[in-house]
Design a protein around this nucleic acid. Sequence first.
DNA 1: GAAGAACCGTACCGTACGGTACCTATTCCG
DNA 2: CGGAATAGGTACCGTACGGTACGGTTCTTC
Lengths: 219, 219
Amino acid sequence: MPADTATSAKFTPRQSAVLAEALRLLVEGGDKALTTSGLARAANCSKESLYKWFGDRDGLLAAMISFQQSKVRTADRSGERLSTDALREHLEIFARDLLEVLAGDVSLALNRLAIGQSSRDGSKLGKMLLEHGRREIDRRARALIDTGKRSGLLRFHDADEAYHTFYGLVVSDLHVRMLLGESGLKDNGRQAQKAVEAFLLLHGTNKDTVEAVRASSAR
Amino acid sequence: MPADTATSAKFTPRQSAVLAEALRLLVEGGDKALTTSGLARAANCSKESLYKWFGDRDGLLAAMISFQQSKVRTADRSGERLSTDALREHLEIFARDLLEVLAGDVSLALNRLAIGQSSRDGSKLGKMLLEHGRREIDRRARALIDTGKRSGLLRFHDADEAYHTFYGLVVSDLHVRMLLGESGLKDNGRQAQKAVEAFLLLHGTNKDTVEAVRASSAR
DNA sequence: GAAGAACCGTACCGTACGGTACCTATTCCG
DNA sequence: CGGAATAGGTACCGTACGGTACGGTTCTTC
């Protein structure tokens, strides 16, 4: 993550610094620890400024999500055709990145926050998280899957379905478990590898790959 | 779900009624709506009784989880050998049940509650939910999978891994999306069907089944 | 039928939060 | 240089919650 260049056009540097501090408080203490007074104290700003900038507490939370997402940029360097090995490599990298993102402190804290609020604000934060937060990573995955199909390495009749299958294979119930407080995996790489193997078996076209994977999965 | 017979030995009928009312409040308004005063008013009991029975608010929440789980009983009628079709049938039923449970009002509300608290109570509620809430359904799934293997219909080298694969195929990111406020699927049955197809392709042994499914998945 | 426990309803206390008002200091700009 | 805008510091208000205390009421039990 870049250090300070994350000054999205939406926020002044000062506001960004305050939002970063707000995220820090949220991560270390949960939403209970994120009070307007506490944030003002920790960020050396006044409550009045907070209310001027963000309206109210909900506005602050929304700004935090928006701010955090402005820092997430996914390198999407899979443009043209791919070899079998390259596809597998890209899928594995994607899976590892996905697991890493989901297990991140800030991601978990924001998801917990949105989930906690979802019952009383009409899921406003949840919608933000889903629509803006995952758009980037979804797009990257879809591009990868589409490229795989165009290269004749994958076959499916619904890209969305294929993506959800892949997501499920990679994440399983890990995300919810981590949200509930469990620690993550010891080895994301291995999980990514297995998920990709299974996914290629389900949707790959390369017979050698399929057979090889099949044999190994039955080992 | 049985109406009133759910009087676990741990709670008196009166306490059970109060806990049921607490769950109702939680479902309809989130944790913010579940105040001790509000519960006392809604359940026609006194706050003093609440504190006498459950200790403090956290004790009440824990009791709610325990109470709800005492109502969930999974019929586990898969004892002996299975045919291919019977296995598929059982897997589909399980998958549908799983999706239905996860999408249930009370389940979602309790998971939201536990996730919201996880950052400030050392994940006590989260642990309860994972260890006691899922034990039943996990056991049922594992029994099913083991039976499949003993019947020569499934192959894998790690039952846990196979179960997680199946879980991922069935649920994907649906659970988190619903926790964030999205509505569930229109058709759980179809999702269950597709997940079972994929799972059998990955871990089934029946060649006919495998080929048939393979063909259909590439349709 | 009386003693006693369990329980209800309510009133109360301390606290902590969201939000507002007011005043001061710094910076920006003509 | 001077006035306006911006932002920090602080004190304050209303509210609502968790938790406690107490008097009155119902239910049990002998």
